[in-house]
Amino acid sequence: MTITVCHLYPDLLNLYGDRGNIIAFTQRCRWRGIPVRIMEANLGDQVQFEDYDFLFIGGGSDREQGLMAEDLTARVNNLRSAVEDGLVVLAICGGYQLMGKYYRMPDGTEIPGLGLMEHYTEAGDTRLISNVVVEAELGGIKTRLVGFENHGGRTFLNGIQPLGKVLHGGGNNGFDGTEGARYRNVFCSYLHGPLLPKNPALTDLLITLSLQRRGQDHRLEPLDDNFEKRANQAMVEKLLGKKS
C-alpha cells in the first residue's frame, strides 16, 4: 500500500522550515520500503481529504494565514468527516490554532476557526519565543519532544487532551504547563524546529496510525536513529542540564 501525504498550501505556508515535517515523514517511510507519495494541495484545488493518509497543516504570516483559513472553511465538512474517520493530521502553530474554535484579537473580535476541536486561542501581549522540551506519552511510552516555539496566541484546551507536559518553554499559554493538543488522530503543536525530524518516536507513531487506518496493523521496522537521538538529547541537556 502507498501512503499518500497531503502537503497543504506548500506555496503559502513555507515559514520556519516546516516542510521538514514532510521530509521526515516521507524519508522514514522510504527507508523502510513503504511506498509514499506527496500530493500538494493549493488554494482552490479540489481536495478529497478522505483519500489522504497523512495531512500536514503549517502556519504562515498573517495574510497567508487568512487565505488558508478562508479556503479551508469552504471545505470544512469534507475535512471534518475525514478527521472523524481517523485521518492522521499534524497541525503546527497557525494550523493548530485554526483547528480550534476561534482566535480572539486584542480588541475582542473573534476570528472563527474550523471548529474541528474544542480549543480556542487568545492574543497575548508578548510572543512566547523559546526552545522547548515537552514530555509526551506516545503509544504508551514516555518521550521527550524538543522544538522551538514562536507564537503570540495563548491557546486553552477547553477539555481536550494536550500533546504533553512542558518541561521547558511556554507551551500552549505560558502557565497551565500543557503543550499542543490531541484529538482522534489529530496531533497539534506550537513546536517548529521542525518538530518531526528530531522526534522520530512521534513521526513513527504518525506513520503507524496512517497504516492502521488502512487496516495494516504491523510493527514498524526499527531504524538507526543515532543522529536523531543526539540532536534531541543535545537540546534536552542544554535546557534541562546534563543529568536529564
Binding site: Y16, G17, D18, G20, I129, N131, F148, H192, P194
Partner: peptide
C-alpha cells in the same frame, strides 16, 4: 536562535 530555517 531558531535554526528551523536549515530545513528550507
Amino acid at each position: 536562535r531558531d535554526i528551523s530555517w536549515l530545513w528550507d
